[in-house]
Simulated scan of single mutants.
Amino acid sequence: MMSNETNNDDRAEAEFVAPDDQFANHEFVIPEVKVKLVADMQKWIKSQAYHDYVGFLTCLSTAVKGKPLSVDCLVSKPVEKLLEMLGRLSTLVDETPPVEQPQRFGNKGYRTWLNHVKDEAVDLTKTILPVNLHRAAEEVSDYLVQGFGNETRIDYGTGHEASFASFLCCLYRLRVLTPHDQVAIVTKVFNSYLDLARKLQRTYRMEPAGSQGVWGLDDFQFIPFILGSSQLIMHQSIRPKDFAKEDVVREYHSEYMFLECIKHINEVKSGPFAEHSSLLYSIGSVPHWGKVNSGLFKMYKAEVLQKFPVIQHFKFGSILSIEPNS
């Protein structure tokens, strides 16, 4: 199902043609939590969902190897619709200002924003899906809603990030997004999602979900470090030892996701980088970006995908199934 091939020479805009109707008789369902005990983690690791999710991220990482965010790439109709959707959600933030409240963190205006997202999620998802797959909208949109944080705690973390990546993975599994879209999924869609996630974090003063603080890679994100390190593979001048340098971040942050993450961390944290982000800082001792990329992917599996506190909130449906990978 997964392919590493990309059509980088095709610059013509793709027509929004419905995929072959392989899901004509498919019964879509509302995703549910199914990893309820630590013992259930083996079901997840051996599941079709785990296989497809990891495969999807691997494809995306490979697709943007050596490519800056400004790379010329195909922007298909589904990608356009995804960008329009994220733009709409960003506008909703502007229309839903923080409320006056005594506590500093966890502004309750976020809950109002998320309720708007819930109201619009199915219809927004239908704008991305071809008509013959509108039946899938409720299942797919559930991952979208879960991709921006927790309504009760008003926090955000790598589990929510994984839910949005799962939303994209579902579209890939449905063949709405194709291997030709892989570069744009990273450089356009996921990058726009990161902008929105950071806007939410700033606007509503969201708490990090399960943050490990100085001992973690980042308070909120992980995936952009994987994708961003792949972008920097084969770079002529930027080495891992250089990523925390002010002049490097200032000059290249808009082109490389990894460096944009560093810029954001520097804006929200104070003090020496080596002290407030020691684990991330240690990456500077790795000799080349290829090794950084593979190491981060292993770390992501171990510290996110194989951690019960994260996966206990993950939902499974008919597209990303808990059933064993065949």
Rank of each mutant, 00 (worst) to 15 (best):
M2R: 13
N4A: 08
N8V: 13
N8E: 15
D9V: 03
A12C: 11
E15M: 13
Q22L: 12
A24T: 00
V29R: 15
I30V: 12
I30N: 11
E32T: 13
E32F: 09
K36G: 09
V38N: 11
Q42M: 13
Y50V: 01
Y53G: 02
C59P: 08
S61E: 14
S61Y: 02
A63V: 05
K67D: 04
P68D: 11
C73E: 07
L74W: 02
S76V: 03
P78A: 01
K81G: 00
L82S: 05
L86C: 03
L86K: 05
L89R: 01
T91W: 15
D94R: 11
D94L: 09
F105I: 07
N107F: 05
Y110M: 05
W113T: 04
L114D: 02
L114Q: 15
N115W: 13
H116E: 15
L124K: 05
T125K: 00
I128E: 05
L129W: 08
L129V: 06
V131T: 12
N132I: 06
V145T: 07
Q146C: 15
Q146F: 08
G147S: 10
Y156R: 03
Y156W: 07
G157C: 07
E161D: 08
F167M: 06
C170L: 06
R175S: 14
V176I: 04
V189M: 08
A197E: 00
Y204A: 01
R205I: 00
M206Q: 07
S211W: 08
G213M: 05
V214F: 10
V214M: 15
F220D: 02
L227N: 02
G228M: 02
G228C: 08
S230N: 13
S237N: 14
R239T: 10
F243N: 02
E246N: 08
E246L: 07
E246G: 05
D247L: 07
V249H: 03
R250L: 11
E251K: 11
E255I: 00
E255Q: 15
Y256C: 04
E260W: 04
H264N: 13
V268Q: 12
V268C: 12
S270I: 08
P272E: 13
F273Y: 11
A274N: 15
S277R: 10
L280Y: 06
S285V: 15
V286A: 07
W289T: 00
G290S: 11
G290L: 05
V292S: 10
S294K: 15
Y300Q: 05
Y300T: 00
Q306P: 01
K307Q: 09
F308P: 04
V310Y: 10
F314H: 10
K315S: 10
I319V: 12
S321G: 01
E323W: 04
E323I: 02
P324M: 03
N325R: 08
S326F: 15
